[in-house]
């Protein structure tokens, strides 16, 4: 499946932003933007966006040594080679494991923290908020050495657990801020009504708030998954064993080889892209709401 096809398959993207009906469409038409002013720049930009995607697809499908600009005759040799000889099969499993566990841990921990921030007033709330906002500026890349030492102390070097923990931690600040904003959007009175009906706080949360949080949780979970799927430095630093590596590290190894096997690199890249493209197609419609709900305005 190509990147392009998958993106096309996105069902009704941006449903989140319906245009309110224009009251005076006829009167406005004199001022409508001329079509060419939309399509011309958009087409030029799309060329810039899509040629690189086409390029990697082309290299992954055409035989080694070919210089044809269409992937014909088509071959899947590169995929077979990269999946078995270059261990991308193993990397793929590792990356899925890291991505899914990071997603679950981030969502759960952020849900608890976000709920506390949205619904309670407590002593260290301001300090906690400040810590969250500031942590967004702390780059994991600059903490590689101390993190390595911590994981060495915990005997977690070469275990996927180290990468999962590190990815989760650096994903948390933004996730908590996002989720607490989503929870604030759910009226407190709904929860109160459930308490009056005899639910305890936990049950009320589960049956009243959680269903309404679904789009927000999907957005936050997808960010966590895509980030940990894409991220590279932690895996590079904390995993020395080839069987434990993840896809981005595998890609980097392919690029670093003395004579780069371009077909294998392209096939590896496509394998790296597929899950992200699926997730992206899936969350498209929540992307805009997810961000406007407070990613930036914190």
């Amino acid at each position: 499946m190509s990147v392009k096809e998958a993106t096309k398959a996105a069902p009704a993207p941006m449903r989140a932003a319906p245009e309110p009906p224009r009251p005076s469409k006829k009167n406005r038409s004199w001022d409508e933007v001329p079509r060419w002013q939309i399509y011309l720049p958009l087409s030029i930009y799309l060329l810039f966006t899509l040629i690189p995607f086409y390029w990697i697809l082309l290299f992954s499908l055409r035989p080694a040594g070919s210089t044809s600009l269409v992937p014909w005759p088509m071959t899947f040799d590169h995929f077979e080679k990269v999946w078995t000889e270059r261990s991308f099969g193993t990397y793929f499993q590792n990356s899925v494991l890291v991505g899914v566990v990071t997603l679950l841990m981030t969502t759960l921990v952020a849900l608890a923290g976000g709920y506390a921030l949205a619904r309670f007033n407590f002593k260290i709330k301001r300090a906690f908020m400040l810590a969250l906002l500031c942590s967004q500026f702390v780059p994991g890349a600059l903490l590689l050495v101390p993190l390595f030492e911590i994981f060495a102390e915990l005997q977690m070097i070469n275990s996927l657990g180290s990468v999962i923990l590190a990815e989760t931690v650096f994903q948390l600040p933004l996730s908590i801020i996002l989720i607490s904003n989503f929870i604030k959007n759910v009226p407190y009175t709904l929860e109160e009504a459930a308490w009056v009906d005899g639910c305890n706080r936990m049950t009320a949360f589960r049956i009243v708030v959680l269903p309404l949080l679904r789009p927000g949780l999907i957005a936050v979970g997808s960010f966590a998954f895509v980030h940990s799927w894409n991220h590279f430095l932690f895996a590079l630093m904390f995993l020395n064993n080839q069987e434990k590596q993840t896809i981005p590290v595998g890609l980097n190894t392919l690029m670093g080889a003395d004579s780069v096997d371009l077909g294998a690199l392209a096939a590896g890249g496509i394998i790296a892209a597929v899950p992200v493209v699926i997730v992206f197609a899936f969350i498209q419609k929540w992307l805009i709401t997810g961000f406007s709900a407070g990613a930036v305005k914190g």
């Binding site: 990147v3 392009k4 993106t7 096309k8 996105a10 993207p13 941006m14 958009l42 930009y45 799309l46 966006t49 899509l50 690189p52 995607f53 895509v226 799927w229 894409n230 991220h231 590279f232 981005p248 890609l251 980097n252 890249g269 790296a272 892209a273 992200v276 493209v277 997730v279 992206f280 197609a281 498209q284 992307l287």
Partner: peptide
């Protein structure tokens, strides 16, 4: 158009 324009957003640095 939006889907295509936004698509590189999810692509990793290594990719």
């Amino acid at each position: 158009g939006r889907a295509l324009v936004f698509s590189p957003w999810a692509v990793s640095g290594v990719l």
